[in-house]
Design a protein around this nucleic acid. Structure first.
Length: 941
RNA sequence: GCAGGGGUAGCCAAGCUCGGUCAACGGCGACAGACUCAAGAUCUGUUCCUGCAGAGGUUCGGGGGUUCAAAUCCCUUCCCCUGCACCA
């Protein structure tokens, strides 16, 4: 190999093959202390992109660090194959989705093979192999590949069923009604942004309308749908659309009048819905009156064309004081009806709706954009700062934000209202049918609202190591907020059968909460030593909970493994997991496992986004395919990029140019380290001690950074600061081959977690046997710190800085440089002052007293007192480390004389070093008097 | 709506927990120099403003406050972003 070119593709390949041949990635129980880390396993929904590699890379870096730090490391991985993604992918292949087919072909899939991918389990199989072979192994991750598993294997399903038996036994499975998106043709559908099931409306939210029952004189109900039930006290009239023909429908023994579009919605959400043949034109309702529940007042029915039959019931109650639509409609009808103001809001007067309309110059019902704007304006203000006024009976004086649900619940309790759920925008199924919301009367839930479970989970989360700390603070609030979760569904999804209801499948969030425990088993499953049939509840009870007895030696062996590896030390996942996966991960562990087996830590990382903060989308194929990126930049460059580009807790923008710079740096490091002069063995006491000391400080900082998983600091010190130290050493003329070699060996070890391939290659270059990946991580030895030499070098750097600045400002070419270090008496005064400060006694008086006690200092009292005044002020501003460094008794002139040759070379002119105390001093322009400790006076000719 | 994150020099991005070492890590870009036939790469230096002696001035979204001292603490205001459940 040409030594000046670092052929990363070959190098990466070579070492990956070597690692996996030697199986250094497999978890073994040898060192007596263990570290269990895993990432939130990925769903199987297509090719991944460079963004996903960020979290995976963090995980491998941490795992490698721990492995080198004396831990047995278990770093397994698996696939979350449950749920909709692989089914969605298979469906796309089936319907010949052009993007999907093109993507597969780009990845060298044959037509024949593509056909196979119409089967979801084939999709899982295919992508599992892609992730392992093309992504994880190509990035050098030391994942224990002998434990790979998926959530749709027979063994895993038994594991999940055991989990649900446990939850059931603990009374954490409950049944109650639930409302879910449903296509009358296709059954349950997922409404989400990826739009796997739906062709339109993936962004839709479910709105919860309160349907308030207004009674007509003939006993029929006019059901007005509203999102603001508390405004019932301000109703002045009703709106029906005069151009619409309404229908009469029997609902739970009542007769409702609503738009015909509404009937279907009602039929999916209410138990007894029976359409009748009776139709009522809107126009014939106009002029009648109906009774407002709760306030028992009769109000007229008026025509309002804005009442949309597609929205909720098609009937609208009118609150002209607080709803801009109602206000404008009322103005247009020219009826002499006075708005009733029921909410007091600072910033608004007698009619907030009118004022908002005036402000936005709304004059007609048809100006829907402006009306929506006005509505939002009024609503937000009223919700946050509004208070119900005296017209609201028992609710008077209470803030809108607090009373909203109370009014609704009171209406519901008196059977004067009902709830109707509806999408905020039309949702269309892939089959073309409009998706509705359907009531499932006896849905099963995991009772995450359980007060004991919530409390215990919160208490436990407090004890966990959670990165970043902001999430540690946020988590208890999320656990409080986290409600019951519907856990089963029926439809074309992959997953485990729910044990208490035939043909229903456990949904994918709920089947991936205890899964790291399964990594202990998967090794035995994959080698066929543990057949699924053997995984009975008794088996799981024994292995995980220590209940019952072992049926055979294998059970004991597996239990030993479990007791060794569990609990998880770090579960690492993207920020999308903050509000769903991590909470249920904790809560299920708390519910089922005793405290010693609950996860010890979480690590949340943010995303890699595309330019403009747009999330890189998995479904769209991703910006930069992984295997191409690996070839273009090199894996080590990408790993370094992820670790160094920013804190793990901010989104980073993928930028090809930036990644290229990291590639160049890897090349540069290779060249730098392979071309170092390691043949001349010429020690230099000062310089060598300085390098050793600096190295020691770096080691300390790097170790600390890794211990808190601060990969940015660790990588910055290793890949930027350390090479710079070494370059300074070389530039200063350092030639101690033994020391340089030792430095290099240390560096290679330090770099290994982040750039393992480069490290292995350098390790071999240095003549060592493989693998550096299994070497111990270097630790500092405090005896190697030499403050004296650090201070000496910093003095030198300071002098160079000052000289440069003078040259820059004066723009002269130096013919000769004179350096004058401070006289001994200044050093003495400074030290006296520092001593006083250490005893917290420093003041001008105290200092002068001390100083005058010395006859030699007293002899030049005037100069001394001038300097002392300045020193006292300076010391007050110093930091602790500054003060410590000033304590070091450095022979400044002596030190600088030793580096004379270096300075002369750097400034290309003769250099003289004088101490202000020198009898023979040459000081033509009287500079020496300005010298102070650590700040020699300078004169350039 | 609920919960959370963020605004730092041309750009990306540290620092903010524990106020002083901060004109503010590091990187990129730009400029100059070295090397080279040249380009690229690499190396050196400069890169807020002013300054012919190592200095001074003005900065960390806006405004106000605490302090000898604030990017860092407090108050207030404007703007941006993210998650929210049957999607993983």
């Amino acid at each position: 190999m040409d030594e000046s070119v670092y052929e990363y593709v070959k190098v990466e390949r070579k070492w990956q093959d070597a690692w996996f041949d030697a199986h250094i990635e497999e978890a073994t129980k040898r060192k007596g202390q263990k570290f269990f880390i895993h990432f939130a396993y990925p769903g199987v929904s297509g090719y991944l992109h460079v963004g996903h590699m960020r979290g995976f890379s963090y995980c491998d870096i941490i795992a490698r660090y721990k492995r080198m730090s004396g831990f047995d490391v278990l770093f397994p991985a698996g696939f979350h194959a449950s749920g909709i993604p692989s089914v969605g992918f298979a469906k796309k292949v089936q319907r010949g989705d052009a993007d999907t087919i093109r993507l597969l072909k780009q990845n060298r899939c044959s037509d024949e093979f593509i056909q196979r991918l119409t089967d979801p389990t084939e999709v899982v199989k295919y992508f599992s192999a892609v992730y392992v072979d093309n992504y994880w192994k190509k990035f050098g991750y030391l994942i224990d590949y002998s434990r790979i598993m998926t959530t749709i294997s027979p063994g895993y399903k038994r594991f999940i069923q055991w989990q649900f038996h446990q939850l059931h036994a603990k009374h954490l499975l409950i049944q109650k009604p639930h409302f879910a998106p449903y296509c009358p043709n296709c059954g349950p559908v997922a409404v989400d942004r990826s739009e796997t099931d739906v062709s339109q409306g993936g962004e839709a939210e479910v709105l919860e309308f309160t349907v308030i029952k207004f009674m007509l004189p003939d006993g029929k109900i006019l059901p007005a749908a509203t999102l603001r039930p508390e405004t019932i006290f301000g109703v002045t009239n009703m709106w029906v659309n005069p151009t619409v023909e309404y229908s009469v429908v029997d609902v739970d023994d009542e007769q409702w009048i609503c738009s015909s579009e509404c009937i279907e919605k009602l039929s999916y959400q209410f138990d007894k819905v029976q359409p009748t043949l009776e139709k009522i034109p809107g126009s014939s309702l106009v002029g009648k009156t109906c009774r407002v529940p709760m306030v028992n007042r009769d109000v007229p029915i008026l025509p309002g064309v804005f009442a949309d039959p597609n929205v909720a019931t098609g009937i609208v109650m009118s609150v002209p004081a607080h709803a801009p639509y109602d206000w404008i409609a009322l103005v247009e009808t020219k009826k002499p009806i006075a708005p009733i103001k029921i909410i007091d809001v600072p910033g608004f007067g007698e009619n907030p709706a009118k004022e908002a309309c005036d402000e936005l110059h709304v004059t007609s019902q048809t100006q829907t954009d402006k009306l929506d704007q006005a509505t939002e304006l009024v609503y937000k203000k009223e919700f946050h700062t509004g208070v119900l006024n005296k017209l609201c009976g028992p609710y008077a004086g209470i803030r809108v934000s607090e009373i909203k649900d109370t009014v609704k619940n009171d209406l519901l309790g008196k059977d004067e209202a009902a709830i109707l759920r509806e999408f905020s925008q039309p949702v269309i199924c892939r089959c073309g049918r409009r998706v509705v919301i359907k009531k499932i009367p006896d849905q099963w839930f995991i009772k995450y609202s359980d007060p004991d479970l919530t409390r215990e989970s919160k208490e436990y989360a407090r004890t966990m190591a959670i990165y970043p700390v902001e999430y540690w603070e946020e988590l208890p609030k999320i656990l409080d907020w986290f409600g019951d979760r519907a856990v089963i569904r029926k439809g074309s999804w992959l997953g485990t059968e729910f044990p208490y209801k035939k043909d229903w499948i456990i949904e994918p969030i709920s089947d991936s909460t205890l899964y790291p425990a399964y990594y202990v088993l998967s090794k035995y499953v994959n080698t066929k030593r543990l057949p699924p049939e053997e995984m009975t509840d008794a088996f799981f009870d024994y292995v995980f909970l220590g209940r019952g007895t072992a049926k055979n030696a294998l059970w004991r062996e597996i239990k030993d493994d479990f007791d060794y590896w569990y609990p998880v030390n770090i579960n690492l996942g993207g920020k999308e997991h903050k509000t769903v996966h991590f909470p249920v991960y904790i809560m299920n562990h708390v519910a089922i496992f005793p405290e010693p087996k609950r996860p010890r830590g979480l690590f949340v990382h943010w995303w890699v986004t595309q330019k403009g903060k747009e999330k890189i989308s998995k479904s769209k194929g991703g910006a930069e395919p992984i295997h191409e990126a690996a070839l273009t930049y090199g894996v080590d460059a990408m790993r370094l990029y992820y670790a160094h580009i920013g804190s793990p807790f901010v989104d980073i923008e993928w930028d090809a140019e930036t990644v290229t710079k990291y590639k160049i740096r890897i090349q540069m490091l290779w060249r730098l380290f392979t071309h170092l002069n390691r043949t001349t063995d010429k020690p230099d006491e000062n310089l060598d001690a300085w390098l050793q000391s600096t190295l020691t400080r770096r080691l300390h900082k790097i170790h600390e950074a890794y211990e808190t998983f601060d990969l940015r600091v660790a990588s910055n010190e290793t890949f930027f600061e350390m090479p710079r130290d070494l370059q300074w050493y070389v530039k200063r003329g350092g030639k101690n081959a033994a020391l340089v070699t030792k430095y290099l060996e240390t560096w290679v070890c330090l770099a290994t977690p982040i750039t393992p391939h480069l490290s292995e290659e350098l390790w071999a270059f240095l003549g060592h046997e493989p693998f550096v990946s299994t070497q111990p991580f270097p630790r500092e030895a405090t005896k190697d710190v030499s403050e004296y030499h650090e201070v000496g070098e910093s003095l030198l750097i300071h002098v160079i800085d000052d000289l440069s600045e003078i040259l820059k400002v004066t723009n002269i070419t130096p013919k000769k440089i004179s350096i004058y270090t401070a006289p001994a008496w200044k050093q003495q005064v400074l030290r006296l002052a520092l001593d006083l400060e250490d005893r917290q006694l420093l003041s001008m008086n105290a200092l002068m007293k001390e100083v005058m006690a010395d006859p030699q200092l007293k002899a030049q009292a005037k100069l001394v007192s001038q300097y002392a005044g300045k020193v006292a002020g300076d010391i007050k501003k110093m930091t602790e480390t500054d003060r410590q460094r000033y304590h070091v008794k450095l022979d400044e002139a002596g030190y600088l004389r030793q580096v004379k040759a270096f300075l002369e070379a750097a400034f290309s002119c003769p250099v003289e070093v004088w101490s202000a105390d020198d009898a023979a001093i040459v000081d033509p322009v009287q500079k020496a008097k300005n010298a102070v400790p650590r700040r020699p006076a300078l004169y350039i000719e």
